[in-house]
Design a protein around this nucleic acid. Structure first.
Lengths: 121, 121
DNA sequence: TGGATACTGAACCATACAGTTCAGTATCTG
DNA sequence: CAGATACTGAACTGTATGGTTCAGTATCCA
């Protein structure tokens, strides 16, 4: 059984669970931005935005660098590989689980066809 | 620009941000289970587990059905399509963003080669 | 130098969340 | 019927989250 970096998934999924933070990632996907830029986009105080950026940094999704007065934010090193991997595996489970259900349904149909009221189509 | 179902992403990413809940999904991927089953697996009270299952239900990742005393939990209708789509798009942004950076680096190299310390300036 | 700009840290607030206990209700089983 | 089982709802605890204000510090620019 593959072991996923559980704690890391906790923080990155949590980071993604906020619309503002997802928006920040999208904006940074277009161009680097300062805290002020981001705060303006999302109509929020600098302090508030700084916290969101902090969460994204913790998750490795954003890196920042302060030059002079300005902290510039850019997309970070992580590319959501583990998150994608987890979801992919989940989908496999999901598919196989529903295949099983399909089989059950088929079986029921078969029984119905053999023992049911209208045995010939 | 494609519009993602923001509120839905909020709740499903939040649902996934807890290791216990991800574990529940994995267990249900193997077989349906009662609240008692799940609570035992994760060493938790029934009440505690019921809450987690509630969160997963809200996110559409689990459905439950109570028959007699027993509430049976199974994987729900949602297959994390939207979540995958969001992450996919993010990866595209990430890639293009880093292509841009690569281009910048190339440009710097070029300038260095032309104007660098050894060739003039 | 002095004023505007960009950020930071501390403190605070309201709400949500993960978990518990406890006191039920409803259902099975002998 | 009695007792065990499976769950539920309310209430409580501690901690995290999303947001604010306010009082700074550091930097830039005229």
């Amino acid at each position: 059984m593959v072991q996923y970096p559980t704690a890391r998934l906790d923080v990155s999924f949590a980071a993604l669970s906020d619309a503002t933070r997802r928006g920040v990632l999208e904006q940074l996907g277009r161009a680097d931005a300062s805290i002020t830029d981001l705060a303006q986009t999302f109509h929020m105080t600098l302090t508030g935005m700084r916290k969101h950026v902090g969460v994204l940094e913790q998750a490795g999704l954003v890196t920042t660098e302060k030059i002079g007065r300005v902290r510039t934010c850019r997309l970070g090193p992580r590319r959501l590989e583990d998150e994608t991997a987890w979801i992919e595996r989940y989908r496999q489970l999901w598919d196989s689980r529903f295949d099983e259900l399909d089989k059950l349904v088929d079986e029921l149909h078969w029984k119905e066809n053999v023992h049911g009221p209208k045995s010939g189509e």
